[in-house]
Amino acid sequence: MFFKNFSEFLFDLYEEPIRVIDSTIENSKYIEIDLSIHNKVLNKLDVSSASTLGDYITNHIKKHNAHVAFGGYNETRNIYKRNTHFNDESSTERNIHLGVDLWCDVNTPVFAPLDATVHSFKNNANYGDYGPTIILKHDIKNVEFYTLYGHLSLSSITGLKVGEKIKQGEQIAVLGGAIVNGNYPPHLHFQIIKDIQGFKGDYSGVCSLQNLKFYLSNCPNPNVILKLGF
Results as ranks from 00 to 15, higher is better:
L98T: 10
L98G: 05
G99M: 08
G99S: 13
G99C: 05
V100G: 04
V100Y: 09
D101K: 04
D101S: 12
L102S: 05
W103Y: 14
W103C: 06
T108S: 09
F111H: 02
F111A: 00
P113D: 00
T117H: 03
V118F: 01
K122A: 11
K122D: 05
N123C: 07
N123T: 11
N124E: 15
A125C: 13
A125G: 04
N126M: 15
G128Y: 10
G131Y: 02
G131Q: 00
T133V: 13
T133F: 11
I134N: 03
I135L: 08
L136Y: 08
K137Q: 15
H138W: 10
H138Y: 11
D139H: 15
K141T: 08
K141I: 14
V143H: 13
F145S: 09
L148G: 11
L148Y: 13
L148D: 11
Y149K: 04
Y149F: 13
G150N: 06
H151G: 03
S153A: 12
S153T: 09
L154E: 12
L154Y: 10
L154N: 14
S156V: 00
I157F: 07
K161Y: 10
V162G: 03
K165E: 12
K165N: 11
I166E: 00
G169K: 04
G169A: 02
G169H: 00
G169R: 00
Q171T: 02
I172Q: 01
I172G: 02
A173Q: 04
L175P: 01
L175Q: 06
A178T: 10
I179H: 14
G182S: 03
N183Y: 14
N183T: 11
Y184E: 03
P185N: 04
H187F: 06
H189M: 05
Q191D: 12
Q191Y: 12
D195S: 13
I196L: 10
I196Q: 07
Q197I: 12
K200H: 13
K200P: 07
G201E: 01
S204M: 11
S204E: 13
S204H: 15
G205M: 14
G205D: 14
C207A: 12
L209V: 10
L209N: 08
Q210I: 06
Q210K: 13
N211W: 09
